[in-house]
Design a protein around this nucleic acid. Structure first.
Lengths: 164, 164
DNA sequence: TCTGGTGCTGATACACTGTAACATCGCATC
DNA sequence: GATGCGATGTTACAGTGTATCAGCACCAGA
């Protein structure tokens, strides 16, 4: 069903897809939102990859076997999922990853994008948030949302020799 | 030639376009690079707006009067300008702004994008950089580049009443 | 039960963003 | 002049995202 030959071996991978789905289901029940089949399938597709997926990739994965999922439907599902914090958009890649954490809604996320294996990790850093808030206040700027994405090499890949 | 009816009144605007061009000329001379007409025109277009411009916007502005500038040419010019730090790409908008500062090449920039007037300011913050480096080190991640973009309301706009 | 509204999905079309490939031009160098 | 190189022009196309309208399920209320 899905390719495991790649380099990544993140905890965030496949094993957690079911967790993510369960959490989503709970959250939607709490907020009285519909966790429909399409939304579930889109979330599952995203959650089963540590790499970010494009909307068209997702559409392709969900299509086949007599089912056709158009990209536009995927976008709508992704809008829903991002609004509810279940999925994050990676602006620098025009792609999406499932949210691995249960952070408070307001938490400032840092995305770590590995150039070598293509995987994405997310962290939070209150210290960075603090300093950033201070910087913004000094500039007289009232933030409402922010994007912080770092490209580089992840721990697993820098431990490994670069492939020849 | 260009619309001044808008809300913004940033110092970064129009008056500085000539400064930016002069700096670009100097920099290209130093590095033995060609500062061609197209590159100059693209930079001028970007520098004369505090708002980020899309590549197709730029192409449109440069076209007319018997001249036709295709978007692909604009992209090439933008590649050149971004590689040399004269222009920055705003990932969250798929758009470009001219670089207002003379920061060292490695400096971590923070882009402040105003939702109300659409203008973009840029700052740097060594403190944020410090904390971010620390966070990345803790995660075992070696950064090579990063994006930090904040959306919100700029000082001039939050002083002003919201338009009805 | 019927009816109307609301929210989700399907489908088509289209706009915007970005790249590939090849031809041409100008310029420096040999 | 011949050659090579970088920049630009041109066309075509791939990838990303939105607008719009139609159908469908489901629920509330008459």
């Amino acid at each position: 069903m899905h390719d495991h030959s790649a380099v990544h071996e993140h905890a965030a991978c496949c094993g957690n897809a079911t967790d993510t789905l369960a959490r989503a289901e709970r959250l939607c029940a709490e907020r009285d939102l519909q966790f429909t089949r399409l939304r579930r399938d889109v979330l599952e597709a995203v959650a089963s990859e540590a790499k970010p997926l494009g909307a068209y990739d997702i559409a392709e994965r969900l299509s086949g076997q007599g089912r056709r999922v158009a990209a536009v439907s995927v976008y709508r599902a992704l809008d829903f999922l991002t609004e509810n914090g279940l999925v994050h958009r990676i602006a620098s890649r025009n792609a999406f990853v499932s949210c691995g954490h249960q952070h408070g809604d307001g938490a400032g996320l840092v995305f770590l994008i590995c150039r070598t294996c293509g995987s994405i990790d997310e962290t939070t850093s209150p210290e960075v948030d603090d300093q950033l808030d201070r910087t913004l206040a000094k500039a007289g700027f009232k933030p409402s949302s922010r994007i912080l994405e770092v490209e580089g090499e992840c721990g697993s890949c820098s431990g490994r020799e670069p492939s020849p």
